[in-house]
Write a protein that binds this DNA or RNA. Structure first.
Lengths: 195, 195
DNA sequence: TACAAAAACTAATGATATTAGTTTTTGGGG
DNA sequence: CCCCAAAAACTAATATCATTAGTTTTTGTA
């Protein structure tokens, strides 16, 4: 009954912490409330719904991830930047796999929110690609290709999708990124041949 | 009270139909029961839990998907087969996007089940790759790369992850697959250079 | 034809999110 | 310094889930 000094931000913050510690599936309004020494209903003074809360958590997670990526590519360009961002992406997904799931479940939510997130996610990737002398449209294509590969890989990896085979996953990932690096190289080559 | 002649199989079948029609999120034991003219509790004579039921649905979906892929690559090899399986994968994911989600949520489930599914999913992909003269280990790496790209792409696409940009998604996907085709080509080239 | 197993049912429990309505706290204006 | 309105917390209730226990009904077969 003494006030806990909660607000939207601190509730989101607490949710992130809860999810990182106890996991995605353990989360509920009741459990969150308990961890804040508050009754469940009190949370609704600060957030409209569990969905809205998850959206906030997802956006915060996106910011964290983008920050990691941005940090990772600082001062790098071309393939150095490419391998760096790919490594940062995968590392974040592994180190914060519960948050990564929230990011990926974010998509299904609505309109504006999604656009803001998409814009953020795209930014460091486009920065990396800007070093390859691509046209505007090519950048969009390759941005999609890179994101697909990175997400597809970590999604399979984390969900146990390609367990146990006698081949190192780090090496698989390196090969995947190299494949894209080579593909980007080819774009330039083809342009030269066009002249 | 007259018997509905249900059994595990028909319940799974009905679940698939329900999910395809009304969607993943609309599903509940109660709604399923309603669609079968049965009380909720009766379903438990045939399935142990919602989780077990979803596992069954997921495995059935995997079978369908693998069948599509297998059909698509019949009589093809090398890049023909590669582009065919990639197209079939994406088409299935789009045409049965609710089922595709179930497949992807399958992963988190347990041990044996997962292995069986993984084995099935891998099969037609390895068949395609067998045309490229790869070593055993290389096959595993490239299988992971291809699966990552395909899943990553359709996941982003379906969840609205890379909406609206002025670049055709079909073309992005073609480029992604071409990138892998070129990568596979390079493996051979490098082997030749080794001699 | 009777009976036992299978299939359906009723009723209950315990999570869950959410809302309505009530009490408590507290910061700023008289 | 005190009062009061808004904000923050609370209590209580509802509705939706999955799931289980215990009961009745149906039906194949001995």
């Amino acid at each position: 009954m003494p006030r806990q000094g909660l607000n939207r931000e601190s509730v989101v913050e607490a949710s992130i912490q809860f999810i990182e510690e106890k996991g995605y599936t353990a989360f509920s309004m009741g459990e969150l409330a308990k961890s804040l020494n508050v009754k469940t209903a009190s949370l609704y003074n600060h957030v409209e719904s569990v969905d809205a809360l998850f959206t906030e958590v997802g956006l915060a997670a996106v910011s964290q991830m983008v920050a990691s990526e941005t940090q990772a590519i600082k001062g790098k360009e071309k393939n150095d930047a490419l391998f760096a961002i790919a490594a940062a992406y995968r590392t974040f997904a592994k180190d914060h796999n519960e948050l990564y799931r929230v990011i990926m479940s974010l998509q299904k939510s609505k309109n504006k929110v999604l656009e803001r997130a998409a814009g953020q996610i795209t930014e460091p990737i486009l920065q990396v690609l800007s070093g390859y002398g691509l046209s505007r449209v090519e950048q969009i294509h390759w941005q999609r290709i890179l994101r697909s590969m990175m997400h597809g890989f970590v999604a399979h990896e984390e969900l146990g999708g390609f367990s146990h085979y006698p081949a190192d996953k780090n090496e698989s990932y390196q090969m995947a990124v190299q494949c894209i690096a080579d593909g980007l190289q080819n774009v330039k080559k083809e342009q030269n041949e066009d002249r």
